[in-house]
Amino acid sequence: MATICAIGLMSGTSMDGIDVAILKTDGVSAIEAGPSLFVPYEAEFRKRIEASLETARQIVKRQERPGELVELEHEITIRHARAVEAFLSSSAGDWGRPEVIGFHGQTVLHRPQAGITVQLGDGALLARQTGLPVVYDMRANDMAHGGQGAPLVPAYHDALARCLPEPYAGGFPVVFVNIGGISNITYVPAAGDPIAFDTGPGNALIDQWVLREGGVPFDADGAIASEGHVVAGVVERYMAAPFFLKSGPKSLDRNDFTLALAEGLELSDGARTLAAVSAKAILKATEHMPEPPRLWIVCGGGRKNPHIVGDLRTGAEKMGATVIVAEDAGLDGDATEAEAWAFLAVRSLKGLPLTFPTTTGCHEAVTGGILAQPDKMGLPGG
Rank of each mutant, 00 (worst) to 15 (best):
E75Q: 13
A56C: 07
K47V: 04
V108G: 05
V108H: 02
P151R: 12
T199S: 13
L211C: 09
V28E: 07
T360I: 11
G115Y: 12
L88E: 11
T258L: 10
Q373H: 12
E236H: 13
F356V: 02
A340S: 14
P154D: 01
E227R: 15
C163N: 10
A276M: 05
M138R: 13
F356Y: 15
L132G: 02
D311G: 13
E287S: 04
S91Q: 14
A232G: 11
P357D: 03
M138D: 03
G381E: 06
E236R: 14
R313N: 06
G248M: 11
L37V: 03
H104G: 01
T355H: 10
E327L: 09
R294I: 00
G192L: 08
V39A: 11
G149F: 02
T322Y: 05
I22D: 00
G368D: 01
D193E: 15
E227M: 10
Q113K: 15
K47Y: 09
G181L: 08
G248A: 06
E236A: 09
S278F: 06
H157W: 03
K350F: 00
F343T: 00
A2R: 14
H157F: 12
I179S: 01
A365H: 08
K24W: 00
S348T: 01
L132D: 07
K284G: 06
I324P: 10
I224P: 04
V108T: 04
W209P: 06
A83S: 14
N305E: 08
S251I: 03
G102P: 13
F38N: 13
